[in-house]
Structure formats: structure tokens, C-alpha cells
Amino acid sequence: MLTLRSACQLTTKNLGLHKCISKTVISALGRRGYHSENYETSKISGKKALILENALEHVPQLGFTEDAIVQGGQALGYSNLSKALFPSGPMDLISYFFLKQRYALSSLKPHLTTIPETSGRVVQLIWSRLQGNRDIVQHLPQMIAICTYPSNLRKSLSSLAELSDEILYLAQDKSADFQWYTKRAAISAIYSASELFMSRDTSPNFEATYNFVQHRIQHAKALNDLRNDVLEWGSFQLNAVRSILRSRGI
């Protein structure tokens, strides 16, 4: 049971999400690329990735800290290189964690084909992504705090936009119009809120977080249905106006 203070804090952070959403949409206008089935556009490669990969092994104990990166480097024979190689420090480690978790979602493809509804697939994808946080759940508040530093905000919002794009792509969402933007903004908001919720969730196997995700997705789906109804109403009105104009001899 959340205390009143915790609930207020969660509410406050949720309110902050609305400001972030517009930035998420704007950042989505930034660097994008053509996704090819024949060409790989991966960013994971080289020695830096190996160091960060090893650093992730230490995150459950040390959190997203410089120490974790130093430990990761030492396992490969490096020492005291983290400052030069990773100027953003913990944020580089967090970005790598985000990237790795996002790529891991692809392994869900076979399972997703058994779920008929797009919204059901989205729930499973978000839940799967949240499962990736299980080992580090005690460090989630720290991770979220680092992501919201002004100097890190652009990077973290970009990661969030990429995650929502990945989720909707894997869920085989068919929107190619402006709903492309509104749906990605909605997924970003839902994932952020769910991650915040998870950082305070003490229920067994994060049951409450799963229910939270489901309710949020169902709510978003209801809003989308409302949008379609409004557009249909608008179309009727337009035809009515034309009929009136015709009856007046135009």
C-alpha cells in the first residue's frame, strides 16, 4: 500500500511526464533512419561494448555508478580508463542497458504471434521490458534520477522514443498517419509511469505492476476508440453541410 506521501510523489512525477512527452515527440523528429532487412544498423560493437557488458554484471551490487564501469574494465585488463572512454559515466552505462534491453525484445516475436490483439502484444512487450529491470529494481530510483539530469535528458528521452518505436513495431501496429506519433507518445508515457510504479512495487513477482500496465493500455485503447468516434461524427457533419448547401441551390 502506497503511503500518502509516496502517492503524492508518484503523482508529481507523473505530472512531470506530460512535459517530457512533448519533448519525446520532438526528439522523435530528430535523427531517424531507414530500417533495412538486408543491412544491419546496430550500434553495439567494439571494446566499449565489452567493457559496458561486463559492467552490467556489477550493476545489481554496485548500481549505475562509476565503480561498476571500473569493475567492468578491470575484468578485461583495463584500469582507470573509464573517465576518458565514458565521459558521461553512469549515463553511458544506463544507455547501454537500455539499448541491450530493447534489442532483447526481438526474442519475443514467436510468442507474440499467439496473441491476436495489438494491445495485448503491447502489454506483453512492456511487461517483458519491465522484467529486464528485476535484477536492478533497487537501483531504479537512482537510474531514473540520473536520466532526468538536464545534461542527460536528451539521451534518455531519445532512448524512450526508440523503445516505444520498437514496441509498436514488434507489436505490428499498422498506424502510418499522425497516430504514429500519438501512439508512441502514449507508449512512452505508459512505460515511464510503469517503471516509476515498479520502483515502489513490493507485491510478489510485481503483480501490481502488471495490473498497472494492463489498465493503462486499456485506458489508452479507449481513448483511441473515442478519437475514431469523433472523426466519424465529423465526417457525418461534413456530409450534412454539403446536403444543406445543395438544398440551397449551390
Binding site: Y34, S36, Y39, E40, S45, E53, E57
Partner: peptide
Amino acid sequence: PFLRSSITCRRISMGRKELSEKDSNILD
């Protein structure tokens, strides 16, 4: 850790050619 790192890097760069950023932007 080492085996997973190798698998991760090898799987992702399985000899595929990179589409240049310029071409990617043009097609986009």
C-alpha cells in the same frame, strides 16, 4: 560473461553490410 559478450557482438554483426548514413537518410 565472456561467452555472452561474444555471442552478443557476433550475432549483431553477422557479416552484414552497413547501409551508409547518407543512403539511410535519403531513403528515409
